[in-house]
Design a protein around this nucleic acid. Structure first.
Lengths: 340, 340
DNA sequence: CCCCTCCATGGAAACGTTTCCACCGCCCCC
DNA sequence: GGGGGCGGTGGAAACGTTTCCATGGAGGGG
């Protein structure tokens, strides 16, 4: 039982009195093997505690049977959802998933891509941080690439699965405007960030509704807690006349809630707050936060499907857009006389 | 540039006019190669866009250069932290990480272990769901196993890295008792769950403080949102005289907060609430929740270190215990006259 | 001036699979 | 009754590395 080394296909073949080709056929399910022989092979394999080596198979097949997944941060609830979606799909297709976090650093991301290529992964799903990694090379050398949640303007040819952020922000903006708000603050992502879609949607929707956009109310912050807090604090202190805040991400929403509390602003009596990303704490807040849910799990699942099952549909056409959903809770109220 | 197939070590050797052994030495850093030759090899490799294949190397070395990580749910903030810790450590050691989620299902877990063994991972880190997976076999066949956050009583020989849950619950219990609370409800994990440590610590601490434990106040719930909610609702409705609730996990804490709100109980005026797991929403709650922080990131990091760097220290001795920290916020107040 | 050592290098044998090919009976159909 | 498939099987050649071993010089000490 406690054999010197892990059993190989050769050992099984010898033990079962057949050729290695036959053992291979039994385990890979290809070709034809008589029932009796299969039985014998399986028995021998069980006896020896044999597990086929993915390394040997991978070398021969020139693919590892796994995919790579790069997210900015596994700790972020949205990205965690996305990871779960990829895992769910990959499991169904018999692939394992190598996960890594790039923390928004293009250099780190490039390094991860490099490593994944060496692993000869069957494909890479990434929430890309930047164009520094040689995505094209990765796609060419050994695998295909699908972007999730974000796409890179420089690389339109790489397929992507995105949430309909523009639609989400539009419904949020319309909702706030519908409540009578005219001076709505917008907390957005970093200036150059690909999330510019959300800011554009905000501006467009307001324009469409005939509400003038005050530049002063649109602020941008890096995707970090401190930056988000600073941005929110800056906005609410500078403009005491703001009656609603639209946070374009859960970190920004968190900051808005914290700053409002710090400034003793009642929600929604003094300010209405709404955000993008319906993370779990939105419901725990007091009052519960109105938010736009973005389907992180589905994005991951779909990206994985696109990568592994639909090579045909990849590469041509527009990114896949998944719908968002407005979840109205208690953090937004009708316009009241300006505070102060 | 767009070569027919990805370049191999042979192609590089031919292009550089050297033997493949030399190319191998250049890339693996072993043996000695003259500077001039190294230069030539690197140039040729660059020209051909060569990446060594981890598959070939793995086959020869009989290890894949990756480790497996099994958690109940990547979406859970605590486990996400743990994953991040493992990733951080593994990256430093040049190993990749295959992540999968077992959702508390021992059968699924066993299947994942099986797959990881086939991948010939260098080791497995698991937050184990049960003893159904053949952990011993996994450890024997190809890799070593380290448990994180939980251990299995049936398998004391498998090394583990845990949070000092007993200590955390003790400080929480003492804190509540110190505020004068005598009828403290305890929301704990499923009856058979390994988290029994927490319930025991609760009972022991109370006993030590001379506070009698009322069985009626100690309830258990499966690790799911609905079960947690049901348990919390049951407790608070059944015993209106409870003045404080200790939730032994963030899902249970969430449930307690929601139920308290549902029942129109003011926190902490009517009930004090405290929980294990200092997840990010604890600070966003109103009032912010007092909690015991468990070092998820460190647990992951340490488990990975133990697995990859300290094979000597594995196997012998007690599990590694990492300290917790009581974070006092505003959700617990001094005892007041019973509600009603 | 010779021998021993050491560095730089190449050849070749693993590592554990899959799969092409060839082979052998057997059954079925003409 | 003979020939042509065809199901079942084994041999052997890849797949891309690492590494042991052998070889050939160069240099240094006796």
């Amino acid at each position: 039982m406690a054999q010197r080394r892990t059993a190989t296909i050769k050992d099984v073949a010898a033990a079962a009195g057949v050729g290695i080709a036959t053992v291979s056929r039994v385990f890979s399910g290809t070709g034809s093997v008589s029932a009796a022989t299969r039985e014998r092979v399986l028995a021998a394999a069980g006896e020896l505690d044999y597990r086929p080596s993915a390394l040997g198979r991978g070398l021969k097949l020139r693919r590892s049977g796994g995919i790579g997944l790069i997210v900015p941060d596994v700790t972020d609830p949205f990205h965690a959802d996305l990871v779960a979606g990829v895992l769910a799909c990959a499991r169904g297709l018999g692939e394992h998933v190598i996960v890594d976090a790039a923390y928004g650093d293009p250099a780190r991301e490039a390094e991860i891509v490099e490593r994944l290529v060496e692993q000869r992964v069957d494909g890479i799903i990434a929430v890309p941080a930047g164009a520094r990694a040689d995505w094209r090379a990765a796609a060419r050398v050994c695998s295909s690439v699908v972007f999730a949640d974000r796409m890179l303007p420089d690389l339109p040819e790489i397929p992507a699965v995105l949430a309909d952020d523009a639609g989400g922000v539009r419904s949020l903006t319309e909702y706030l405007a519908g409540l009578g708000h005219r001076r709505v603050g917008f907390l957005g992502g970093a200036p150059g960030a690909p999330a510019g879609v959300r800011e554009r949607a905000f501006r467009d929707t307001l324009a469409q509704l005939g509400v003038p956009v005050e530049e002063d109310l649109v602020v941008a912050a890096r995707a970090a807690r401190d930056a988000a807090y600073a941005a929110a604090a800056g906005l609410l202190q500078r403009r005491a006349d703001v009656t609603a805040v639209l946070a374009a991400g859960h970190l920004l929403g968190e900051a808005a809630v914290l700053v409002a509390r710090e400034l003793d602003l009642r929600v929604p009596a003094d300010v209405s707050i709404a955000m993008v990303d319906d993370v779990s704490w939105a419901e725990l807040c007091d009052p519960p936060l109105t938010a736009v849910a973005r389907p992180g799990h589905d994005i991951g699942y779909r990206a994985c499907e696109l990568l592994l099952r639909e090579p045909a549909r990849r590469g041509r056409g527009q990114p896949v857009l998944l719908p968002t959903e407005l979840v109205v809770r208690g953090s937004c109220g009708p316009l009241r006389p300006a505070r102060r």
